[in-house]
Write a protein that binds this DNA or RNA. Sequence first.
DNA 1: GCGCGAATTCGCACTGAGTGCGATATCAAA
DNA 2: TTTGATATCGCACTCAGTGCGAATTCGCGC
Lengths: 212, 212
Amino acid sequence: MDTAPPSPATPGKTEGLRDRKRRETMQRIAETGLRLFMENGFEATTLDAIAAAAGIARRTFFYYFKSKEDVLLAWQGSGFVEAIGPALLQEPTDQSPLAAARHCLLTLTARFETKASIAADTLLRSTETLRARKLAKMVDMERDLAQVMAERWPDRAAEELRVAAMLAIGALRLAQEEWRLDHAAHPDTARPLAEHLKATFALLDRQVPSTA
Amino acid sequence: MDTAPPSPATPGKTEGLRDRKRRETMQRIAETGLRLFMENGFEATTLDAIAAAAGIARRTFFYYFKSKEDVLLAWQGSGFVEAIGPALLQEPTDQSPLAAARHCLLTLTARFETKASIAADTLLRSTETLRARKLAKMVDMERDLAQVMAERWPDRAAEELRVAAMLAIGALRLAQEEWRLDHAAHPDTARPLAEHLKATFALLDRQVPSTA
DNA sequence: GCGCGAATTCGCACTGAGTGCGATATCAAA
DNA sequence: TTTGATATCGCACTCAGTGCGAATTCGCGC
């Protein structure tokens, strides 16, 4: 468990002892949960088991997480999501928003392929609701991305940027899918996510206009 | 409740008395459920209430639906989903797959705007998991669409068609969003879904290539 | 018509997630 | 040191969903 642990939004203040303990506890729950999920599966792991293993009362669990699913969801693209906004703000504005997003995602995907997030991703496919909630998180990401784009390209229409964000995140989603299949088929010679993403963006360029 | 009710996959056979009863019961549960959801909200409606109102035992409910959510989900784009495949197979192949999908969706959205499906859509936004599962259903639609495209354009690469399907369903999703906002803001002068969809596709054409 | 096998309906008891309430403990700051 | 907010916990409760098996109904071949 050496990778970026999920953490609550840091309000950018010098944190006291209390805040630190809080973060540590949440982090311990998240790590314990992920470990137990990996060992016994998501559904077979009860809340009591997580609470016990994390050294807290069952009731306290719900002080930190709204549901069992949220523990796993906290790992979904952990770090990645938070990094997109800042990364996009670094991009030069002399390119299209979509091109900027493409560049960002290619850079970030090359970095964020941690053991924990990959394991979480596998678990995320074990249940219908988990799969669904992962998709919902990607749509949230999409909306956030459009929001950041609107700051960076204030002259562009919001709907246009929303579409650009949809394309970028959609490409990311399909690339992840291809990447997973690639790994399942050729565990050894599988290419990294970034390459799949590049290929998907290339296909994207040849698809439009929709009236051709 | 005069609109297309959700029904299990019809295996295209002359159905006996048993099959008919089965369909009727499932339909009654779906309609009762939707009605109670509309009256009291999704979470406030218990399974016991649905079962009682539908005239079945609680246990029998689970013979027809896997979960409470599935009752509502059955209404999500009811009829629409099933119509896409056949409609796409009607399209001439001298246009691009994306153009064909665009044409299909524009035609279908003009038709499927029933009271029930709109009501279901509102309910679908009342809970996080419901919202998530709706998105999951759209991704399923996306996959199906790509599958049908592969039949109709066998010379095209599967990945390319997968991207095309992503674009089409993504546009549909964004158009639905715009449409909902439009209705919320101007309940009277709101434009139909098909128009929003057309606009979204127009924006789509101007977004790529991603390297511009 | 008769009866066999499958489909359907149902009851009961059980697990486990999630909530409401309130009591207690801990910590930060005045 | 007091005080108020934060954190921890236990208890009892509701409700979704499952396992099991009994009872019923129905389609169909004989």
